[in-house]
Design a protein around this nucleic acid. Structure first.
Lengths: 215, 215
DNA sequence: ACATCTTTGTGACAATTTTCACGACATAAG
DNA sequence: CTTATGTCGTGAAAATTGTCACAAAGATGT
């Protein structure tokens, strides 16, 4: 599947962010960009940006900066923007609905292909162009899908997770407070809104003067 | 305000997570817990947990573990769970609505006191018990509020941010894709749903066998 | 053509964070 | 009392990540 385990995780986490901004620049018709400019836009130190880019070789030109078109093309390849990754969303509550309306596909390699919920009023409808199926049909419908966004109530989280994995899902974006357990080989990224808010408040009170940090 | 700048940021970020799970244990009636057990629950290495706790002194007993009641009490104090922090939410779209229904107050020191939106149909109503005011009333209503959750469209982000800061807000949880610019002293945590999904997909494809990581 | 200005890419270093591994103490059982 | 087992707290080592600062290369202007 892949070869470069050399790229630090910290760098890998920043790549999608870079991609987004480079894409913006391209849309704005900008032809070149320096690490300093990019730094101001994404709020990451310019030296860090140069170092990050350098893991992929020499992408820029000295005295000039980076060619936006070239950079964009490079990131498109690196981030597999050409092959679309089908995603399913489980749990069409408020948060789930927000995702369905988000329209990720715009500049992205991900597309939410289908959603699942237990509510009969929702089943059969569409939100943001995404069809909603009943949760009982999960195993049946999930054949091509590799990634899932989990926005179900806490109590269902582990149960649904197991069904997803049995159906071949290898990546889960988990918005429930549950720290779900998965077999090796399955990636889980947790985003706990309550923890994020708590964290912000803690940092506000205990680290008053610092510059902003990632969550 | 505070004194211990000694606690590493990485540790600080995990504190709310620990708190949540210790609270769960307490509710379940558990009397003690070992770093190993906690490790399995929160998916953080047990040595890291012991190290994290040790920054606060000796919270546990050798050969025994940690007393849940004591630990909970300790975290309650450390995370300022006694003084409620008032929060405002700006932008009552799908995502904003999800937050309003989330009911953070349950086991938390944060409470969304008010929300703002530009839509006249929403202004004057309540969601999840939180009153919705017109965005024009922002400066007027925001007196006590120190933190804000930003769930507005991209185009408004920087503009609203500046108004928030003028009104005394010192912490922002930013869900817009914009990397907002703020003066020193204001904390911003960014959560970009699109970047999170991209990131998950990238890790799935390029770091296949690893164990799960934070987002 | 030349001097000057910019900006990259990176070696060296600093800071942060994680992990190992072990002494010390707790508890329980024989 | 002694042994076996479990667990913390923490020095020390390792790994990861971030920052500095500068030579080299190319861009730009006259």
């Amino acid at each position: 599947m892949s070869e470069q385990n050399k790229i630090p995780q910290a760098t890998a986490k920043r790549l999608p962010l870079y991609y987004r901004f480079i894409n913006n620049l391209h849309i704005q018709g900008k032809l070149r960009v320096s690490s300093k400019e990019l730094s101001e836009a994404v709020k990451v130190d310019s030296a860090t940006i140069r170092r990050d880019f350098s893991y992929f070789g020499a992408l820029g030109k000295k005295g000039y900066g980076y060619n936006v078109e070239y950079l964009l093309e490079f990131f498109r390849k690196t981030l597999d923007q050409d092959e679309k990754t089908p995603v399913a969303l489980i749990g069409v509550g408020n948060l789930g609905t927000a995702f369905l309306n988000y329209n990720f596909t715009k500049n992205n390699n991900t597309k939410i292909e289908m959603a699942f919920d237990a509510d009969p009023n929702k089943v059969g409808t569409e939100i943001g162009g995404v069809p909603i199926y009943h949760i009982d049909e999960l195993e049946q419908k999930l054949s091509e899908v590799q990634a899932a966004i989990l926005t179900v109530p806490l109590a269902e989280a582990q149960n649904i997770t197991e069904r997803l994995i049995k159906s071949g899902v290898t990546g889960i974006l988990n918005f429930t407070p549950a720290r779900i357990t998965v077999p090796e080989g399955v990636r889980v990224h947790h985003i706990d809104l309550s923890v994020e808010l708590q964290s912000l408040v803690y940092f506000m009170k205990h680290y008053p003067l610092d510059t902003d940090e990632e969550a």
